[in-house]
């Protein structure tokens, strides 16, 4: 098995060469992948927001964001800055503590799920044994935050939106869990790394999507419903519920909901590729590409790259 890049081992060994004890070196390493993951997720959100705006604008024959940065790429950044400086209004009749806890409880589990997303054999925050099961458990926490936000607002639209959001998330969670169950039965492991390794070896042909086409479709639809995207945006149906559970929210608390929903979207996309589309593996087997290019594992310039 190709070990790939092991940043953790390289980092810890180089620190220990400088004379640090092993425990201290590990303690210095620990927050780095986590911060990388959070920054990566946030940048992914900015890209997704921009793409969504540009593509939906193109579909409706509009231009979309144009002036902020080249092609309007900085529009989501400007949005975020605007939301930081916005006044935070809490309705007089609301429960202030639950009103604040709602978005916080939505955001934390969504970010925490990035723990199990692998970007390489060793490029993952940690390979916990529970793997995808941890993600399913964490995604069950999100409806509590939505319900809390809807109820704490003391607004009829928010309450109905919160109830709808919770009902929709819990309804689609079971098909989601069952389609993941089928993948787990095939790879005999909950670890995302094992699931990707089970698909590797045959390039595109080894992907789980060919063996689980129905499961892929169910997972895709259920993930869309979990993210409350079109056509499953009933909890935020503008024409009937104003903005659903986030009607009363403004400023940073609204931004947290916004961030949470888009981070969830990026996470679902990553997990679709991990579970069904071969994860980090190339669509074409890497040994085939290497033989075409005439590169083997013993090529001298490659050894410089791989072994630091």
């Amino acid at each position: 098995m190709n070990q790939g890049i092991d940043l953790q081992q390289t980092f810890i060994t180089s620190l220990m060469d400088l004379g640090l004890p092993a425990g201290a070196a590990k303690a210095i390493w620990m927050p780095l992948p986590m911060l990388m993951m959070i920054i990566g997720a946030t940048v992914g959100v900015l890209v997704t927001v921009w793409l969504e705006r540009k593509i939906s604008a193109a579909a409706q024959q509009r231009i979309g964001p144009e002036y902020i940065g080249p092609l309007g790429v900085l529009a989501p950044v400007a949005d975020g800055l605007k939301l930081i400086f916005k006044e935070d209004t809490v309705p007089a009749k609301a429960d202030p503590l639950l009103f604040m806890l709602g978005p916080v409880i939505v955001v934390i589990p969504v970010f925490l799920s990035y723990l199990i997303v692998p970007f390489g054999q060793n490029l993952v925050v940690t390979d916990v044994g529970m793997g995808v099961f941890l993600w399913i458990a964490l995604s069950s926490v999100v409806p509590i935050g939505l319900l809390m936000a809807g109820y704490a607002s003391n607004n009829k639209y928010s309450l109905l939106g919160g109830l709808r959001a919770a009902a929709q998330s819990i309804s689609y969670e079971i098909p989601l869990a069952l389609s993941v169950l089928a993948i787990v039965m095939m790879s005999n492991s909950l670890s995302t790394i094992d699931i990707v390794n089970q698909q590797s070896g045959y390039g595109v042909l080894g992907w789980n999507i060919w063996r689980q086409p129905v499961g892929f479709f169910i997972f895709w639809v259920a993930a869309l419903a979990e993210c409350e995207r079109i056509p499953f945006d009933l909890p935020e149906a503008e024409e009937e519920l104003v903005a659903g559970y986030q009607t009363e929210y403004s400023g940073m608390k609204f931004a947290l909901f916004y961030l949470g929903s888009y981070v969830n979207l990026v996470l679902s996309a990553l997990l679709v590729s991990v579970l069904y589309l071969g994860g980090w593996e190339l669509p074409i087997p890497i040994s085939l590409v290497a033989s075409w290019l005439g590169v083997s594992e013993t090529t001298p310039w490659l050894e410089i790259l791989v072994r630091p």
Binding site: M37, I38, F85, L115, V125, V128
Partner: peptide, 24 residues
């Protein structure tokens, strides 16, 4: 790492809300 990541993730909304509180 799960515990550490939980702490780091909890810092995201905490920092965001504090920054907004100072600026808004």
């Amino acid at each position: 790492y799960l515990l550490g990541f939980l702490l780091v993730c909890s810092l995201v909304p905490a920092l965001a809300l504090t920054a907004s509180k100072l600026l808004r």
